[in-house]
């Protein structure tokens, strides 16, 4: 299983999301092919309703602790309730392009 699939599986079981997108954006950065270093997650879950944004991100970071310890470098993270997702038109912002500041370059 590659990192994208592992992230998908971990978040699926932790968050019970109604919508989950995991995208490998490593190619947008100055890292070797197949680096699996930069990812974007859009997670929509009713369970977020009781949590602030910072707590929601902590939940995701905690679920992915093993990935961070094994080479996951950057995570663009969009964590919404179904209502918030609807209000945003179901679209998450694009992640920024690389500016070569990664120490793992």
């Amino acid at each position: 299983m590659n990192r994208r699939e592992r992230i998908q599986e971990q978040l699926q079981s932790t968050l019970s999301p109604t919508h989950l997108e995991v995208t490998d954006e490593s190619h947008m950065h100055n890292v070797p092919a197949g680096a699996e270093s930069h990812f974007k997650v859009v997670a929509v879950s009713e369970s977020f309703a009781e949590h602030s944004l910072v707590v929601r991100h902590r939940l995701v970071n905690k679920a992915l602790k093993g990935e961070f310890e094994s080479g996951l470098h950057a995570l663009a993270l969009h964590t919404w309730t179904p209502q918030e997702w609807f209000e945003k038109g179901g679209v998450a912002p694009d992640s920024p392009q690389c500016m070569s500041g990664s120490k793992s370059d």
Binding site: L53, V54, H57, N61, K65, H73, P93
Partner: peptide, 25 residues
């Protein structure tokens, strides 16, 4: 602050989050 990524933004001594939370706020 047990937060794995950069940047980190602190307001009034408290972590508000990274880039995505700051932009959303």
């Amino acid at each position: 602050a047990d937060w794995p990524t950069f940047p980190q933004i602190y307001v009034d001594g408290e972590l508000i989050g990274g880039c995505d939370i700051t932009l959303e706020l």
